[in-house]
Design a protein around this nucleic acid. Structure first.
Lengths: 168, 168
DNA sequence: TGATAATTGTTATGGACCATATCAAATATC
DNA sequence: GATATTTGATATGGTCCATAACAATTATCA
């Protein structure tokens, strides 16, 4: 395909700025492809997209998976503790838990120490689902990074991203 | 919907599951800290946050900056072309352009070849703002990655993220 | 040629996610 | 015991993202 710069008609000059017009060719990303934020965002979207595909059978979003992981690793914690370490605001965590509880994956238990708070615990079904989810993530999701980058690079990537997340 | 209001008293375990209750200590992230999606998302949020701080004087979001960069690098393209290469849906691109145009950074020019389309061009002010923005990004934003990771690692990171964005 | 299809920018709209203010109940503080 | 703080929850608004639909224009092709 050939670039055809169109000569604009001379008659329509209303003091309008004339722009060179291009067709068909692929756009030049230019410096965009080296902008950290740009490439980071696009990578994140791709990874989430793939995560959702891998988890289609369990119907778990990345955020829901992180809640199950964290509750399982930290039994006996309340909503604010779990939510805040995940960067989720308490009001927004309510609907999330309603969802998980309605699917019998997680339970709110009123604490006997502090009857304001709700202790979070995974149900048996929740634990089973989490186990299956971990396997899916390992075999279908994370393994794909190894294929793409190699083991060493994959680990280096995680380390660098963690550093950015914690120290930037 | 109201849940059983405070009917249970302390001490009566009526078939209620008792959860071990913990207080005060920091939560264990566990496998979460090695989940690609988790660390990727948190890093992205931090980077965007820092970007906005650096650009406060110019009032440019990452998305707006990317539009200016792309229009500058590809003069004579129309809205759909610019939007699609940025992953922005055309309907959502309209308000974005309205904003940039109202600030006199970008202009829509009706094409004489195809009178359906609007050719996008940066205004003089838009070019000036972009130049200043690039400088701010380089000196205040991207440089921080070098300080944190080192030049070589920074480049390796961008390469890996691009690979994920394009091939995952 | 003329009828039909496709494209462009746009509007309207709904969903998902995020942030703030506010509330009642329970607890902490003084 | 009066006041302040914490916890879960509701209401609400903003932003981003996705789809449907429309008028104007252009492409297709019978």
């Amino acid at each position: 395909m050939t670039v055809s710069k169109t000569v604009e008609k001379a008659g329509d000059a209303k003091g309008r700025k004339e722009a060179p017009e291009v067709q068909g060719e692929a756009l030049q990303l230019g410096e965009l492809s080296e902008q950290l934020g740009y490439v980071l965002k696009r990578a994140q979207l791709k990874v989430f997209e793939n995560f959702l595909r891998c988890m289609a059978s369990l119907q778990l979003t990345p955020a829901q998976f992180s809640v199950l992981l964290l509750v399982d690793k930290n039994p006996g914690r309340n909503q604010t503790e779990i939510a805040s370490t995940l960067g989720i605001l308490r009001p927004n965590f309510v609907a999330m838990l309603d969802n998980l509880e309605s699917r019998d994956l997680c339970t709110r238990i009123r604490s006997t120490n502090d009857r304001r708070s709700h202790i979070l615990v995974l149900t048996d079904k929740g634990k089973a689902v989490l186990t299956r989810a971990k396997k899916l993530v390992a075999t279908k999701h994370e393994s794909r990074l190894n294929d793409l980058l190699g083991q060493a690079n994959r680990e280096a990537l995680i380390v660098m991203l963690s550093k950015i997340a914690n120290e930037f």
